[in-house]
């Protein structure tokens, strides 16, 4: 075996592992007789995907400032959540909702990686690549906020499905066991409460660094800046609605989904400090 076999691990390796895990989760929930076999096979593929994913990150050191890097890092943290959740809450169809998000993020990272191959040269400004403390802190805060937003998105999807079943008075035990509305709402609330301060601190730090490094506000109309600003505003509204008024949780769930869409745009857009000026 080659000493550097792990250097050949690609997006496709872990993306397909996650996809197989997701496909195996379906028969696990729809056919009780197959549940145990399919569930553990899915966990096996999910674990294999996570290992390959980790190796890929260790070998390639993707920067969170680059679109594909941030998407891959976010997918990796969510994969940890998936594995933890699926082992500790084996009776809930958590993986069916989280795995598509992970697979989607990996797919987007592949797509953006190809598009960005020429637009993102190797000589990234030092602080953006995380070599300096404040730059790394900025990236970490945004990444952790992204995790919160993603969890809030998944909880919102599950909430909407559960609420739809209740509205139609469908037997909750028939297919896909989900958490209660109360628990999903709590999960959503905690994810928002976790993400908003992190997002605010990360953005504030980014603004300070921007001002210090560039001395001006060039590129402020870039997609990244606008979508991140929009994301912060949506989150501000979410926090206000959640704690300031009594808006039905269903509306909050839709806003969380909108916030996740803005997050994807923000992550996929090039950083305003990208040497090419960033594609739109």
């Amino acid at each position: 075996m080659s000493a550097s076999w792990w250097q050949n691990v690609t997006h496709a390796c872990f993306g397909l592992s996650y996809l197989l895990a997701w496909l195996l989760e379906w028969p696990a929930w729809l056919r009780p007789a197959w549940h145990r076999v399919c569930h553990w096979a899915a966990v096996g593929f999910g674990l294999a995907g996570l290992i390959a994913h980790t190796l890929f990150l260790l070998v390639h050191h993707p920067t969170p400032a680059a679109p594909d890097g941030s998407l891959l890092l976010l997918a990796w943290v969510l994969a940890l959540f998936y594995l933890y959740g699926t082992l500790h809450q084996a009776g809930r169809a958590w993986a069916l909702f989280l795995l598509p998000v992970i697979i989607g993020l990996v797919g987007l990272a592949m797509m953006v990686g190809r598009l960005e191959a020429t637009a993102w040269p190797a000589q990234v400004p030092a602080w953006l690549s995380g070599e300096r403390f404040w730059g790394a802190l900025h990236g970490t805060l945004i990444l952790l906020a992204s995790v919160g937003i993603s969890v809030s998105f998944v909880a919102s999807l599950m909430y909407l499905l559960q609420a739809r079943r209740l509205r139609r008075k469908i037997d909750p035990g028939r297919v896909l066991p989900l958490w209660s509305l109360e628990r999903l709402e709590t999960l959503n609330r905690r994810a928002i409460a976790w993400a908003f301060p992190l997002l605010s601190a990360g953005l504030l730090l980014g603004l300070v660094l921007w001002r210090q490094e560039r001395g001006g506000w060039e590129n402020w109309l870039s997609v990244k800046v606008l979508s991140t600003g929009g994301l912060w505003l949506v989150f501000g509204v979410l926090v206000y609605l959640r704690y300031g008024t009594h808006v039905p949780p269903r509306r909050l769930a839709w806003l969380s989904i909108a916030a996740f869409a803005l997050l994807l745009v923000a992550l996929m857009a090039a950083h305003p400090f990208a040497p090419t000026g960033g594609p739109v």
């Binding site: 009780p32 079943r165 909750p172 028939r174 209660s180 509305l181």
Partner: peptide
């Protein structure tokens, strides 16, 4: 699936409750 779902009114009621409250 012989034990799936809620085959009595009271168990169906309790299981609906469990989908709302934790």
């Amino acid at each position: 699936g012989i034990g799936r779902g809620h085959a009595s009114v009271s168990s169906a009621a309790v299981d609906f409750l469990l989908t709302v409250f934790d």
